[in-house]
Design a protein around this nucleic acid. Structure first.
Length: 597
DNA sequence: CAGGTTAGCACC
DNA sequence: AAACGGTGCTAACCTG
């Protein structure tokens, strides 16, 4: 056994590195006597389901002692790690989903065994302060939490460790975890430190979660578990279709790029080049970016396209085709596992409002205007895609939180909410254009926008927009009162809002108007999360593929689709303050895209 | 030249 | 009086 002594927060700690058979007994003794154990793994990469992914190290530890098992050097170590995972009564992880999926896929210890006895310090950290470092919080990485709560010097060591190793071994940060020698002392120290710090952070975070948020600890672990099951299942990809799509998009991109080149733009992705060429053609680019350069975004190109500018048309088409190829088609092909499944990363507790995020690939942001990209995803063989979403959830949550009588009555009566707004603002004989403006106004209110934003989005004059907003506040007095009250109460909460579910959300001092949106967005997110738990409780989890903010995507046998869709919709439906949050199910064909034709 | 930043664009 | 919220990913560009 190799021992690496270190210091954390003024205390001596030790990293034990198992090397030979003679260490097995000592490790077993440690696991059976140490109590709750922090757990972490080091792998060759982040893509757990890639055919070349291997576990290199498995670490277990307390706040004083870490054990590092060299899993890559022989199957006995994987078996020993698996034994420890099954034996430990309680586990602590930082970002449990990753390591527990690693154990599930590579150590033969299923999520069902590990997840429900695990505490994730990242979840505790998010409940303590949901903000990223960029937003004025501590952030939730192990390094950031160590810096904030344990030992800044150790945080620096952890942060710099793998980067230095990469430099030393003349490789990149992305490659270092794959190629660093298994016995490199600083790799082993880094690996051992992870569990020492995780264990210590647990002790700290136990007391840092706000009182009002305590009940969310169990809730969020259950939600994370359900999302981890979805990650493990994966979403089937239509490989032949996606290959063909990538090919088609490439040809389109090339064709339009050639047209742009003939008109003087070598690289359509260079905003600078496009701006210069458009200016030469006589376009007036008046708007600028944050750094003062001429702005050429979609809205600006759209206007030039409407005027029939050939360059603008070519640039826009080329950019779209190339972005769609690389961001979607190519990525799907690269991420699909040998069984043609994509296991995206679902961060069940991501945004500062607790909204979920989905990465590798970002399946929440696939184009919804048409079916082309979503058609890459398939229900299982013999099954069809089901989508269940909440109807106008943000407006309903707003009505419920504010207690806005007129809106609540309209919801109960199943009336058109944007029509109601239009009649309040423009009068009973509102036009179609006015209904559209009312819809934009409704969303603007949810986001905390004002007259200037409304004017920009509708084409109304600022003066008219101001009148419209005033009419909204008059027509929905409870919403106006609620918005005002939320902002007035901010100082009492330490400049934060606390949702009905007990989630404390700090608000930026420069943006008090965001308080309303945080309440709405976070409350709506918790409805979806509660819906996922109810779906699990009803035994329907196996059907689920994805959560998408106010919607779930599922796959079910064609002959059962109606029944499953209704069961999912029923499980998700709920209420807030007596206001019903209704759901609506849609049944498609084999591909996700079939819902978008 | 690796890695961070900016601009743009996809979604709810 | 007014204030649009939350994400992830890519290519180009900048920097140490």
């Amino acid at each position: 056994m190799r021992q690496i002594p270190w210091r954390v927060a003024g205390q001596e700690v030790v990293v034990n590195v198992a090397e030979g058979e003679e260490d097995i007994l000592a490790f077993r003794e440690f696991v059976t006597t140490a109590g709750p154990l922090a757990f972490d793994t080091e792998t060759t990469g982040l893509d757990i389901y890639a055919s070349d992914c291997r576990v290199r190290l498995a670490q277990f530890g307390t706040g004083r002692t870490a054990w590092v098992l060299p899993v890559e050097s022989g199957p006995q170590w994987a078996d020993l790690a698996a034994w420890a995972l099954r034996t430990a009564e309680r586990l602590y992880c930082h970002n449990a989903t990753f390591d527990l999926l690693v154990a599930d896929a590579h150590l033969r210890v299923p999520l069902e065994v590990t997840y429900l006895k695990t505490v994730d310090v990242r979840i505790m950290a998010h409940l303590t302060d949901p903000r990223s470092a960029h937003e004025g919080g501590t952030g939730h990485s192990l390094e950031a939490l160590t810096r904030a709560h344990l030992d800044a010097e150790v945080a620096d060591q952890v942060k710099g460790a793998m980067r230095e190793l990469a430099r030393e071994l003349k490789t990149t940060k992305g490659e270092i975890f794959r190629i660093v020698p298994l016995d490199h002392p600083r790799y082993l120290l880094y690996a051992g430190m992870d569990v020492l710090l995780t264990s210590r952070l647990f002790e700290h975070m136990l007391y840092s979660v706000p009182h009002a948020s305590r009940r969310l600890v169990v809730f969020e672990h259950q939600v994370a578990y359900v999302c981890a099951i979805m990650e493990r299942k994966g979403f089937l990809v239509d490989i032949p279709y996606t290959l063909q799509l990538a090919d088609r998009l490439e040809r389109q991109a090339k064709q339009h790029a050639d047209t742009a080149a003939a008109l003087g733009v070598d690289n359509v992705n260079s905003t600078d080049q496009v701006a210069q060429a458009l200016t030469r053609r006589g376009a007036a680019l008046t708007e600028t970016t944050a750094t003062g350069k001429p702005k050429v975004d979609k809205a600006i190109l759209d206007r030039l396209v409407a005027d029939g500018d050939e360059l603008a048309i070519a640039v826009q088409r080329a950019k779209r085709a190339s972005k769609w190829k690389t961001t979607y088609a190519d990525t799907f092909l690269e991420l699909a596992d040998p069984g043609h499944r994509i296991h995206c990363g679902i961060n069940s507790l991501a945004a500062r409002t607790a909204r979920m995020s989905i990465t590798r690939p970002a399946l929440q942001t696939l184009p919804s205007g048409e079916h082309m990209i979503r058609s890459c995803y398939l229900a299982e063989e013999g099954e069809v895609i089901i989508s269940v979403d909440y109807q106008a959830i943000e407006l309903r949550v707003l009505a419920a939180l504010a207690g806005e009588r007129k809106m609540i009555e309209a919801i109960r009566a199943g009336k058109d909410l944007h029509g109601l707004t239009a009649s309040l603002v423009f009068g009973p004989d509102y036009s179609d254009t006015q209904r559209k403006a009312a819809k934009i106004l409704g969303f603007g209110k949810v986001y905390g926008g004002g007259p200037a934003t409304l004017a920009r989005q509708t084409g109304l004059s600022v003066a008219d927009a101001r009148r419209v907003v005033a009419a909204y506040d008059e027509g929905y007095p409870a919403i106006a009162r609620y918005t005002k009250q939320l902002q007035a109460d901010l100082p009492r909460q330490g400049f934060a809002v606390v949702t009905g579910n007990g989630r404390r959300l700090p608000v930026d001092r420069a943006k008090p108007y965001a308080a309303l949106n945080f309440m709405i967005q976070s409350t709506a997110r918790d409805m979806l999360a509660a819906g996922l738990l109810e779906i699990h409780k009803q035994g329907l989890l196996d059907y689920l593929r994805l959560p998408v903010h106010d919607e779930v995507i599922a796959s079910a046998p064609a002959e059962d689709a109606k029944e499953v869709a209704h069961a999912l919709a029923d499980a998700m439906a709920g209420q807030i303050n007596g206001v019903p949050l209704a759901t609506e199910a849609e049944i498609g064909g084999r591909s996700w895209g079939s819902l978008y034709t």
